[in-house]
């Protein structure tokens, strides 16, 4: 396994150019990926979850996990005031402790990007969900307009959903083209582009084989990040699903030299869970991914639990939810 992040253009990606020329070649490639051993993946994920992380390692993991949080609110009742409060929290999660790091990003609906941006500036990224989140059921024009709108509002990252209907029906090239088109819609006037995260909604993909196929499909189409779930469907992120995706990004970098990030989202509520994920990242993908640029947690309640644990580590006494904001 390569241990350094690649630089420059991707030499290996060209080898896969013929894979994406037609629906048939793409299907042949995706179905030719080795199958996932379901029992093995679940056992491996469960075994890695038993690791005990204590004292200084735990303190390090807590700060890393806080820096990896995409603080998320995706509700119909979101108001500008509420997201501004959340943005302030993202900047300084624990106002009582200046040594507490900021989170990675704030994740909101596209129309609220400006409200977040006004608070966080460039200190914290702003991620917007787009492409008819969470169902992905809209025409391509609408999805692309949704994306362009969020980018124009100043979003640094775009979280798109794939069309699960098309994916499950086997129309892989359609999904591929949608990701490519959305990526183009992420381009800004100055030539840079917003980071694209592709949400699979693994709870709807049924099998780990499909998760592996979706991962490769999205990576070939130019995703910067692959993300498990919208948080609107149960089950959301699970350890085995994330394990399969981590294997995919590891294999992809081996094959092409391109490193892709992973973001489990939804259902990660406790520090214990978060640390299990970090252990898995280190063991499956490698420590190159132990960085907010390459691994994120999509979460809202997780942050308060991380802060409570952090306070326990620094003060030596248990803290309580009364001392942190409700959001």
């Amino acid at each position: 396994m390569p241990t350094t992040a690649p630089t420059g253009p991707a030499p290996g990606l060209a080898a896969y150019a013929d894979v994406t020329t037609s629906d048939a070649t793409l299907r042949r490639f995706l179905h030719g990926l080795p199958g996932v051993d379901q029992v093995g993946a679940e056992a491996r994920a469960a075994a890695l979850g038993t690791r005990s992380i204590k004292t200084t390692a735990k303190a390090w993991a807590l700060d890393l996990a806080i820096r990896m949080v995409d603080l998320t609110t995706l509700e119909g009742q979101d108001t500008p005031g509420k997201v501004r409060a959340l943005a302030s929290k993202a900047l300084r999660p624990d106002p009582a402790d200046p040594s507490c790091p900021s989170v990675a990003a704030v994740c909101v609906y596209g129309d609220l990007v400006g409200d977040v941006k006004a608070i966080v500036g460039d200190a914290v990224n702003v991620a917007a969900v787009a492409t008819a989140f969470p169902s992905g059921r809209a025409s391509m024009e609408v999805k692309l307009a949704d994306t362009r709108d969020a980018v124009a509002n100043g979003a640094d990252e775009i979280d798109m959903v794939i069309d699960r209907g098309a994916f499950l029906a086997g129309r892989y090239l359609q999904v591929f083209d949608e990701i490519v088109a959305t990526r183009e819609a992420c381009a800004r006037a100055d030539g840079s582009h917003a980071h694209l995260k592709v949400i699979f909604e693994t709870g709807e993909l049924q099998t780990y084989d499909n998760v592996r196929r979706a991962s490769w499909l999205a990576m070939l189409a130019g995703a910067d990040f692959i993300k498990t779930s919208t948080g609107k469907v149960q089950p959301a992120a699970t350890l085995p699903v994330t394990l399969v995706m981590l294997e995919a990004v590891r294999d992809f970098r081996e094959a092409t030299g391109v490193q892709i990030g992973v973001k489990p989202a939804g259902g990660i509520r406790t520090t214990k869970d978060a640390i299990k994920y970090l252990v898995m990242v280190n063991e499956i993908a490698g420590d190159d991914w132990l960085d907010p640029d390459w691994f994120r947690f999509g979460a809202s309640t997780l942050l308060n639990d991380l802060l409570m644990q952090r306070t326990k580590m620094t003060t030596g006494r248990y803290s309580g939810p009364d001392y942190f904001t409700l959001d």
């Binding site: 030596g316 006494r317 248990y318 803290s319 309580g320 001392y323």
Partner: peptide
Amino acid sequence: PWLAAHMDV
């Protein structure tokens, strides 16, 4: 001591 120092008690 843990109970007495616990901030949520």
